[in-house]
C-alpha cells in the first residue's frame, strides 16, 4: 500500500518534471527564433583554413565582455547578451556553428590580446577599439560599430555645454583609470575633472548638481540617459572615434577576409540593424545608425 502511494507520487512528480522540461524547450525555441543569427548548414570551406577547422569542429570559442549593458552582459542564466554577442552569433552562424555551440569566454580590457595570441579564443567581440598599438599584436576585422566619447548633462542643458571645449571651468565626472578620463586630463586641462569608480556615482552627482557633466563613450552614456530620461540628456557631439573591431590571430588573412565579408553581408541584408534594434537599440530607444565602412587595412 505504502509502495503504491510512493509510486503514485513519483509518477505525479514525473509528470510535473516533463511538463517543466517541455516548457523550457519551448522557451529555448522561442529564443532561437528571436535570434538574428541563422545557421548556414551548407557552409563549406577550402581545406586547411581556420574556417574549415572551426566548421569541422562544430564549435568556436569567442571572447566578449560580461559587464557592458547593450553590448555584452551576462544574463542571470549565465549566457551573455548584447550587440557584440549578436555579431558573434552571426559570424558563427556563417561558419555553420549554432549559437548554443559557441563557447563564451569573458575577456576584460587587459586580457584580450593575450587570449588571442595564446589561442584561448578564436575571436574577440568585446567593445574592442581598433588602434595601431593593438594592430601590432592582433588582426582586426570590422569595424562593425563606431563609438565616440561624448558628454551627458542635466536635462535642458542648463550650462549650455555643446562640446568638450565648453567644459573649461566646469566640473566633469568620469571613472578613474578610464581612457575618457585620461583624454580630458591630457587635452582639456581647463575642465575640473573628478573621478569615481563607477559611472552610476557620476550620474548621482549630476542629479545632485555637484558636477555639470559626465563624460565617457556614448554607448555607456545612452544607457544612463535611458535609465533617467527626465533627468539627463546626451550632448550628442562625439569628439573621439572608437571603431569597434573583431579581434583575431595576427596574420590569418583568410579568416579576417571571411569575417569582413560576413559583416558586410549583415550590413546589407539587415541582420546587423536587426541585431542592433534588439540589443543596444532596445536600451537607447534609437533605431540603428548607418553601418560603418569595413576597413580592410
Amino acid at each position: 500500500m505504502r509502495l503504491t502511494k510512493y509510486a503514485a507520487a513519483a509518477a505525479a512528480f514525473g509528470v510535473v518534471l516533463t511538463g517543466c522540461s517541455s516548457e523550457a524547450g519551448q522557451q529555448a525555441a522561442e529564443q532561437e527564433a528571436d535570434s538574428s543569427a541563422s545557421v548556414n548548414t551548407e557552409a563549406s570551406f577550402e581545406a586547411g583554413t581556420t574556417m574549415a577547422e572551426l566548421n569541422e569542429a562544430g564549435t568556436i570559442t569567442i571572447g566578449t565582455k560580461y559587464d557592458q549593458p547593450g553590448f555584452g552582459l551576462l544574463n542571470p542564466d549565465g549566457v551573455p547578451e548584447g550587440f557584440d554577442v549578436e555579431i558573434a552569433k552571426i559570424v558563427a552562424g556563417e561558419l555553420g556553428i549554432a549559437a548554443e555551440d559557441i563557447t563564451w569566454t569573458e575577456t576584460v580590457s587587459a586580457n584580450r590580446e593575450p587570449f588571442i595570441q595564446n589561442g584561448q579564443v578564436d575571436l574577440v567581440v568585446a567593445t574592442y577599439t581598433i588602434n595601431d598599438t593593438r594592430k601590432q599584436s592582433v588582426d582586426f576585422a570590422g569595424p562593425y560599430y563606431v563609438a565616440g566619447q561624448d558628454i551627458m548633462v542635466a536635462a535642458g542643458n542648463p550650462e549650455g555645454i555643446e562640446g568638450p571645449d565648453d567644459l573649461a571651468g566646469k566640473t566633469v565626472c568620469s571613472v578613474e583609470g578610464s581612457t575618457p578620463a585620461q583624454n580630458i586630463r591630457d587635452n582639456y586641462p581647463q575642465a575640473n575633472l573628478i573621478t569615481y569608480d563607477v559611472y552610476s556615482k557620476c550620474a548621482d552627482d549630476l542629479t545632485n548638481g555637484n558636477v555639470q557633466a559626465v563624460t565617457t563613450d556614448n554607448v555607456i552614456l545612452t544607457g544612463l540617459v535611458a535609465g533617467n530620461p527626465e533627468g539627463f540628456e546626451l550632448v550628442g557631439n562625439p569628439f573621439t572615434e572608437e571603431p569597434y573591431g573583431i579581434g583575431l590571430a595576427l596574420g590569418d588573412q583568410e579568416f579576417r577576409d571571411f569575417v569582413n565579408d560576413v559583416l558586410e553581408e549583415s550590413f546589407e541584408d539587415g541582420r546587423w540593424a536587426e541585431a542592433w534594434d534588439r540589443t543596444a537599440g532596445a536600451i537607447t530607444g534609437e533605431s540603428a545608425p548607418e553601418p560603418p565602412t569595413i576597413d580592410r587595412y
Binding site: E176, G177, Q182, D197
Partner: peptide
C-alpha cells in the same frame, strides 16, 4: 578612492 578623492589607491587605478 571610490568617492572622488584622489589618494594613493585612485592614483594606482590611474
Amino acid at each position: 578612492a571610490g568617492f572622488a578623492t584622489t589618494e594613493l589607491t585612485a592614483a594606482l587605478q590611474r
